[in-house]
Amino acid sequence: MAVDTSYYLILSAAVFCTGLFGILTRRNALLFLMSVELMLNAANINLVAFSQYYGNLTGQVFALFTMALAAAEVAVGIGIILVLYRNFEDVDVAEAATMRW
């Protein structure tokens, strides 16, 4: 009755590899952040899929924690990127090669 778990695994792998693709090919720090969001979402899809597969709620609770951590990570990441943009006039991750101290 439900969709096969392996289909969700393939979907999750596709989203994860898309995020990895973005990190490997782009140099914009904001796109890095978005790609990391995609990868975290892929992990969450996996957790929920196996939660349903085993009929065990641990996966769903853990996915909730992942979401909270992702939100915190984005808040700090965007702060860092804004500082990066102010100091280097750019958000290219290859440009920021020096630190102050």
Partner: peptide
Amino acid sequence: QQAEFLAAMQILVYVGGVLILITFAVMLM
């Protein structure tokens, strides 16, 4: 996948929080 609460949290946290933050960053930069 019977995770209705998680879906609500996904929309609230990600679309309502993370995406708004990213939008702010994009528009500031």
